[in-house]
Amino acid sequence: MLVWSRPGRIVIWLVFTLLFGVLFLAPLAVILLSSLADQWNGVLPSGLTTEHYSDVVQGAAWKAVKASLVTGFLASAVALVSGTWAALALRIQDATLARVLGVLFFIPSAVPSVSVGLGLLVAFSHPPLLLNGTIAIVMVAHFVLISAFTFGNVSAGLARLSPDFEQVASSLGARPAYRLRHVTLPLLAPYLVAAFGLSFALSMGELGATVMVYPPGWVTLPVSIFSLTDRGDVFAGAALTMVLVAVTLILLLGLERVTGRQARS
């Protein structure tokens, strides 16, 4: 315990509550209130309604939820496979090469997502790589943006994995593929689940690149929210935001339960 005195601890809790309340809870509370607001001209809404939720459900909300979920799942799955592959491959490389490639893999996370979207739009708008106007370019954009995080998570897991496990497995006669399937991947499972969860959450909230490349008919939740608020329909945008938060939270809590179970075992 860093702070021993009771008054000191009370001060620390007050500071924490203030920061957490202002920075995290207040914006979410405002969005929640907006999604339920009938009219909002004063400090608080003048009345509450669920009409905005009905509107978005009857409108394009479910298509947007589906587009976001499919994009998130596919992009995260591909990022997980490639990130794991990259992390495993880099582990057996020369230390300098591994460091250089490791930095390169992180570059997409340092580029603004709008720039990534623009880059993809330019790169894939001409044959033979004509992806502009397809769902695939949305997947590619999300993959590019989240793959660095899956790579980072899996690399961290591998770094914590004692080489003894794999070496003992090899000495017992396990070939590399058998060893990977029965030893390395099961031991990495908590990190793989965490990497997938993080990638999925990032994908669900991705707007900058998606708004540059999305084709008609594949409007994700963030793009829908952006469109609604851009048109001035703030309350509907807030309702859709709450749908996005709920869907993402449910999925992450599910993944957390899986990870927790694995950690306990």
Partner: peptide, 20 residues
């Protein structure tokens, strides 16, 4: 020869039993 073709058994300091 790769380790898996050497026909050995190995025991290490931290046992390295597969926890799963």
């Amino acid at each position: 020869l790769p380790p898996y073709e050497r026909g050995l058994g190995m025991v290490v300091q931290n046992y390295a039993l597969f926890p799963h």
